[in-house]
């Protein structure tokens, strides 16, 4: 695989979370997790069901409030930011249980996800500018949804909706993209398309990507680094081969069964 080499450890992280804690009632979904993502990385975030992966994304994008810890993005402390401010700084994401605007058209979904930084009243009181529409059309081509341009997003297949979400996440030209199970429930042909797109984004467009993924083959293929969560704690964090061979990881992930059956 022609993957980018992982960044030197002494570069400063694009995104850094320290001691992130989040509980729901008595349940500690995250118990003091440290993560760092360096520019140019493709990081896989894995772990068994309910281990806190999605919750970590929700904390990083500031959708969920933290109980403990601080988060820095591009060197700025974003712990007390609103989600829209974080998005405008260049972090975008997709969702495990797809969040497209179902009753709006595909193109409207795209236009609505543009980079809103600097867009102010009364400048908003005009239709989308041509350059925004053009970017949306280019990205629809990238995610192979040109034909569906004026279909309602809710009428797309599950896999197409995943692709649309990726397109929407790219509209704002983000520096960091968080993908939450971008291939789950998607037919194998589209999985390949999504894998290709993720690869291109990193190698050609230099995007930094974190992906939650249950498909270990895909993680091994795409990622330079892997972080493993288990019961809200970080179990392992390191180079992809080393982490996947770690017996503690396969035990947490697959019970007694090893990674290779």
């Amino acid at each position: 695989m022609n993957r980018r080499p992982p960044c030197a450890a002494n570069a400063s992280p694009l995104l850094e979370g320290r001691g992130i804690g989040k509980s729901f009632g008595g349940l500690a979904a995250l118990a003091g997790v440290d993560v760092a993502v360096y520019p140019g990385d493709v990081v896989g975030l894995i772990g068994p069901n309910g281990s806190g992966k999605t919750t970590l994304f929700n904390c990083l994008t500031r959708l969920d409030g933290l109980d403990a810890g601080r988060i820095h993005f591009k060197g700025v402390d974003i712990t007390d930011h609103q989600p829209f401010q974080v998005a405008r700084m260049g972090m975008s994401r997709t969702f495990q249980n797809i969040r497209v605007y179902r009753k709006l058209t595909v193109i409207e979904n795209m236009l609505l996800s543009r980079q809103w930084r600097g867009a102010r009243w009364p400048g908003l009181l005009r239709p989308s500018r041509p350059e925004v529409t053009e970017r949306a059309d280019d990205l629809l081509e990238f995610v192979t949804l040109v034909e569906q341009r004026v279909d309602l997003a809710g009428s797309l297949s599950w896999g197409q909706q995943r692709l649309l979400e990726i397109g929407m996440a790219l509209m704002s030209d983000p520096d960091l993209i968080l993908l939450d199970e971008a291939t789950s429930g998607v037919n194998p042909l589209l999985v390949d398309a999504i894998r290709d797109r993720i690869m291109t984004l990193n190698t050609t467009h230099g995007k930094t990507i974190v992906l939650i993924e249950h498909n270990i083959e895909l993680v091994a293929d795409l990622c330079s680094r892997v972080v493993v969560l288990d019961h809200g704690e970080k179990l392992a964090d390191g180079e992809v081969g080393a982490v996947l061979d770690d017996p503690a990881v396969s035990e947490a992930y697959f019970g007694r069964r090893g990674l290779n059956g």
Binding site: Q82, Y101, M171
Partner: peptide
């Protein structure tokens, strides 16, 4: 319309 369809989604998209 985005707010009507999915407010947290709209918020997280800026």
């Amino acid at each position: 319309l985005g707010i009507r369809e999915d407010e947290p989604g709209a918020e997280m998209r800026g």
